[in-house]
Amino acid sequence: MRYLTDRKRAVGKGASGTGTEHHRYMQVSAVGLALIVPTFLYIFGHALGNDYATVQATFARPIPAILTGLVLVFGLKHFNAGFQMMIEDYARGTARKASVIFMTAFTYALMATGLFALAKLAL
């Protein structure tokens, strides 16, 4: 049995149906990324252009591997949510729905590829 009225359950959810969840996610992931991205840039910048053995050794160490994994997962999730915002501003109807779905799938494919590579390098 539901104790809330239909109206009360809808209040604060807005057109998206999820209220401020999307915006909140962007804020939380932004803070998290702001903390790890500078270190990731340092690690990646030093690995890029180095020889094969050095790169393998770099990503076999725990901190570079963990940080790169975090940047991949949350950077791409943050990207996907931001992309959705852009599409919702500039497109509508089928184009909007299709591009959001396509980019979500593409984002997860990229994430899986990166994590596979990282696992292979790290283990």
């Binding site: 990646f44 890029l48 094969y52 790169v55 393998q56 990503f59 790169t68 991949l72 950077g75 791409l76 990207f79 990229l110 590829t113 990166g114 596979f116 590579a117 990282l118 292979k120 390098l121």
Partner: peptide, 12 residues
């Protein structure tokens, strides 16, 4: 991101 993931994939 695409380039970095490709580079990591190549390293693996």
């Amino acid at each position: 991101t695409l380039l970095v993931v490709w580079w990591l994939f190549a390293a693996a």
